[in-house]
Nucleic acid binder design. Structure first.
Length: 293
DNA sequence: AAGTGATCCAACCGCCGAGAA
DNA sequence: CTTCTCGGCGGTTGGATCACT
């Protein structure tokens, strides 16, 4: 990674003892040092870790780097539609409690969810000239988003012609993801055979419509004739009838058929930059808002 | 090819609460 | 009770990258 933030200010801060503290982007050596230390001593006691590991970083910085980037079980790639739905619903319930929301999305960090909300969801709301936290926006999402998801997940099953591409896409990205996950686990292995940093070098470009790795259903589910999914009568209730405290992405994934992100990008025609995982088109959502108001 | 604006996201900052001294 | 340290959280920043002209 390039020296991003370090270039805007000094890479070093002087502290009282005269020891220089590094700031800015982490280097390969620092990542290696941190991973190796945690592999040997475990997480936690971050200030002690910072002092004893040889890293010239604050404990906070070490913690952040580990939790948001280096931790092996971190899921990378675009936010899946199920995750988007969960984020929207949980945000409606809890507001900006990112860490709490992140607890319901395994592998996702609070930072990532926060970034997603600010860059994607708020952008959509901004373009609609409504507040993302408003009930109007939530109603639009509830009335529009869920049926759309149903429609598209249903169509991916009902359209064999598109399934080949779907399967190939999913298989390809899944393989890439597995390779990436493997490298993440390798670097956290105490043996430290080699180190390959996670990052843009081995990530699919975020702009790629095929960069999201989508969950695959168990064969028994995928082979079912009909997958029923009613957001208003099943566990997906958008009302508070369903206890969100026990609601997590695993439940959603188990109820949904597999699908391809490419199915969604076709509707994402109003964004200057195709992020590949937007769930709604602005025109359609705008129409829905008109009906609601 | 070059310029420009939009977008993404890693990293930093400040605040707060819990627990120890 | 007060002070200090630490970990955690949410908000913000700014360089890199991308899309468009």
């Amino acid at each position: 990674m390039s020296e991003k933030r370090a270039s805007s200010s000094s890479s070093y801060d002087r502290i009282e003892l005269g020891m220089e503290l590094r700031r800015g982007p982490w280097t390969l050596e620092e990542d290696t040092l941190l991973i190796h230390y945690i592999a040997c001593h475990g997480e936690g006691r971050w200030n002690l870790l910072a002092r004893c590991s040889g890293l010239r970083r604050t404990g906070k910085s070490c913690r952040l780097r580990w939790l948001n980037y280096l931790k092996p079980d971190i899921k990378r790639g675009n936010i899946s539609p199920e995750e988007q739905l969960l984020i929207i619903e949980l945000h409606a319930k809890w507001g900006n409690r990112w860490s709490r929301i992140a607890q319901h999305l395994p592998g996702r960090t609070d930072n990532e969810i926060k970034n997603y909300w600010r860059t994607r969801v708020q952008k959509q709301a901004r373009q609609l000239k409504i507040d993302a936290d408003s009930t109007t926006f939530r109603d639009a999402v509830r009335c529009y988003l869920m049926p759309r998801l149903l429609e598209r997940t249903g169509s991916s099953q009902a359209a064999p012609s598109s399934m080949d591409a779907v399967s190939i896409s999913a298989a390809t990205t899944a393989a890439a993801d597995q390779a990436q996950q493997a490298s993440l686990h390798d670097i956290s292995d105490a043996s430290m055979r080699y180190y390959e940093p996670p990052g843009p070098e081995i990530r699919s470009p975020s702009s790629s419509p095929c960069s999201t790795v989508l969950p695959r259903l168990p064969d028994t589910v995928a082979e079912a004739d009909v997958v029923t999914f009613d957001p208003f009568s099943s566990g997906y209730s958008m009302n508070d009838a369903y206890d969100l405290d026990t609601w997590d992405i695993a439940l959603m994934s188990a109820s949904l058929p597999s699908y391809a992100v490419s199915d969604y990008t076709v509707c994402n025609n109003n964004c200057g930059r195709n992020t590949g995982d937007s769930l709604w088109s602005m025109d359609e959502l705008h129409d829905m808002l008109k009906k609601l108001t």
